[in-house]
């Protein structure tokens, strides 16, 4: 294993992580809801879902990005091509709903409340992500060269 020291950003990672954790802590205490991005978004597909708080949360979530973009901050670069993004997006949307959560719902909230389901789910999606990156960056790239 080789550590990428150039791109390693422990301080902003700790600060950002603490803010994400604080948001999760507040949402369960104040609104009584688990902060899972896929669950909050996916709940909009249910007819009986409480749309107002979900949409309010999502509006808050996207607002800092709109503000950053307005002042000309650099835009995030999606490395994958269009067809890969479409396939990946469908897998992310379907998978997070079938598996009842994503990085925030299982990874941050679920593990924090020591849910065995979330611990297992987080291990599975982390390992699947690592395996996928290995195949794309090393196995396939190696086979092509």
């Amino acid at each position: 294993m080789q550590i990428d020291w150039v791109n390693f950003t422990p301080l902003s990672a700790l600060l950002g992580g603490a803010l994400i954790g604080l948001a999760a802590a507040l949402l369960i205490n104040v609104n009584g809801r688990v902060m899972g991005a896929s669950g909050i978004l996916g709940g909009l597909f249910s007819a009986n879902a409480d749309w107002p708080w979900r949409l309010s949360f999502l509006a808050g979530l996207i607002a800092p990005a709109i503000a950053m973009n307005a002042i000309g901050a650099p835009k995030p670069v999606l490395l994958a091509g269009t067809s890969t993004l479409i396939v990946a997006g469908i897998l992310v949307g379907f998978g997070t709903r079938l598996g009842s959560g994503c990085t925030s719902g299982h990874g941050i909230c679920g593990i924090a409340r020591i849910s065995p389901r979330s611990i297992v789910a987080t291990l599975v999606f982390m390992l699947a992500g690592i395996a996928t990156v290995y195949v794309v960056r090393h196995a396939l790239a190696g086979a092509a060269s």
Partner: peptide
């Protein structure tokens, strides 16, 4: 459902580098 869902999500995450939030 949990296992297949997490696996499916993980592959999509690895392909894109972007999770839902």
């Amino acid at each position: 459902r949990l296992l297949v869902g997490a696996l499916t999500f993980g592959v999509g995450w690895g392909l894109s580098g972007v999770c839902p939030g």
